[in-house]
Design a protein around this nucleic acid. Structure first.
Length: 426
RNA sequence: GGAGAGGUGGCUGAGUGGUCGAAAGCGGCAGAUUGCUAAUCUGUUGUACGGUUUACACCGUACCGAGGGUUCGAAUCCCUCCCUCUCCGCCA
């Protein structure tokens, strides 16, 4: 959520920076609503002040022993009733204007950072660096990972479809063990890098989804539980960031670094026909997520180090990848700046996103009320929130199943993973 | 799921219609003091929005789980919901 005060005081600046994302954002309606809201609010406040005054006066007189039926008290009561009538007209108006204002406010994305490259779409994302060319697979006739997985008997798609739907998978034997090994390996590495592991609820309420800005705009992207205000979490970003919702933290407790393994659930609405095979786009997948809550002055460095921590997993697994900075047109809704890590996927001859590392600045913190207090200073400040995958497990498995294929038709297990899986080939 | 109890400031905990943003204690902060490593004393102590001010600051409004209602006036009374605890049942 953007700051209303900033929109009001420097609308041109906000407008210009929103326009870098796309032309669809118009601040005029919200400025007008805000003007109305302030007018209604000050009228209401004046009435309420007088009403409080009347209440106090009557209280004083009654305690001094006045007759409740005395003309003096009766006329005060009468004035109180008039105010109540006036308020009952003003209040619904103000509430309506406020609600409209809030829904506008919630519909605006974060302002891109000054350093974010300007562009319209994915095409204009900027490659920052590339790593691991020497590990690109050298054999030809590679199988796509889903074929390799079925050949090895470790991935079952048809049976998962029977149990649930398309876009689900059942992992078998070494496949399930590999998934588990990847989770443990990533958590161990991120914990060693200083992230405190948490295991949050997999179901989250609407307030949490609003806090991290999946709601209200992306409701159709998540699975909703009928009969409860609960959704299947689409990413650990939601439960982990919201652990601190509506809290005022001590500055000394920052930065907070968490890692979390969670299952993630996404409806993938509108992606029909895309990535229909394999592990790339499933309704349910596992992920190890990194979440940071930090002092605003440090969020840039924290962002860079977050990316390095995610990259470290790919490097440890010796998987070729590149780092791409998203341009303003491709930037996620809440992000001010975002780097994607893309792993090499030989079957489709491209780099595919395996981690997305975003700095949300104060955007989520304002929605979720995550603040901190500095000793000796008055008031509170909004923290900055960041997160990134470290990494998506299924896509990592896909990358291994493809990049580690050997000419004899087996798949080698990355050395870093061998202690976890206790085997060297599949 | 059934029966009961309860949700008050950073914490403990008073407050059942009137000057209550809320007693008291603890903690925190500031000051004073004492040679004994901490104690004592004094003062202070939330958040948000809006307004006035160069500023220190001041003023108004809201906030006692959430949302409605009654009333001139609600932490206090009524309704709905959420959550917590205890006992029983069920369950990994």
């Amino acid at each position: 959520m953007l700051e209303l005060k900033q929109i009001r005081e420097s609308p041109e600046l906000v407008q210009t920076r929103l326009q870098r994302r796309s032309a669809e954002y118009d601040l005029k309606p919200i400025l007008e609503l805000n003007r109305q809201q302030q007018e209604l609010e000050s009228a209401r406040t004046r009435l309420q002040a007088r009403s409080n005054e009347i209440g106090k006066l009557i209280g004083q007189k009654m305690q001094a022993g006045s007759d409740p039926k005395s003309p003096e008290i009766q006329s005060l009561k009468e004035e109180g009733n008039q105010i109540k009538t006036q308020l009952s007209e003003l209040e619904p108006q103000e509430k309506e204007v406020k609600n409209k204002q809030l829904s506008f406010l919630l519909s605006f994305p974060n302002l891109p950072s000054e350093s974010t490259p300007i562009g319209k779409s994915e095409q204009e994302n900027v490659e920052i660096r590339r790593w691991g060319d020497e590990y690109l697979p050298k054999i030809s006739n590679l199988l796509p990972h889903w074929e390799m997985g079925e050949k090895l008997g470790i991935l079952q798609f048809n049976r998962a479809v029977k149990v649930a739907q398309s876009r689900f998978v059942n992992l078998v034997g070494a496949g399930a063990a590999l998934e588990r090994a990847l989770i443990s390996f990533m958590l161990d590495q991120q914990t060693a890098a200083g992230y405190l592991e948490v295991m949050p609820p997999a179901l989250v309420n609407s307030q949490s989804l609003t806090g991290t800005s999946q709601l209200p705009k992306f409701a159709e992207e998540s699975f909703k539980c009928e009969g409860d205000d609960l959704w299947l979490s689409p990413t650990a970003e939601v439960p982990v960031t919201n652990l601190y919702r509506e809290e005022i933290l001590d500055a000394a407790s920052l930065p907070i670094h968490h890692c979390a393994y969670t299952p993630c659930f996404r409806r993938e609405a509108g992606s029909y026909g895309k990535d229909t095979r394999g592990l790339i786009r499933l309704h349910q997948f596992n992920k190890v997520e990194l979440v940071k809550i930090v002092h605003p002055e440090t969020s840039q460095q924290e962002h860079e180090s977050l990316v390095r921590d995610a990259e470290a997993i790919l490097q440890a697994l010796k998987l070729p990848y590149r780092v791409v900075e998203l341009c303003t047109g491709d930037l996620g809704f809440g992000a001010a700046k975002c780097y994607d890590l893309e792993v090499w996927l030989p079957s489709s001859n491209t780099y595919r996103e395996i981690s997305s590392c975003s700095n949300f600045t104060d955007f989520q913190a304002r929605r979720a009320g995550i603040r901190f207090r500095e000793p000796g200073k008055k008031g509170t400040r909004l923290a900055h929130t960041l997160n990134g995958s470290g990494l998506a497990i299924g896509r990592t498995m896909a990358a291994i199943l493809e990049n580690y294929q050997q000419s004899d038709g087996t798949v080698k297990i990355p050395e870093a993973l061998q202690p976890y899986l206790r085997r060297e080939v599949l």
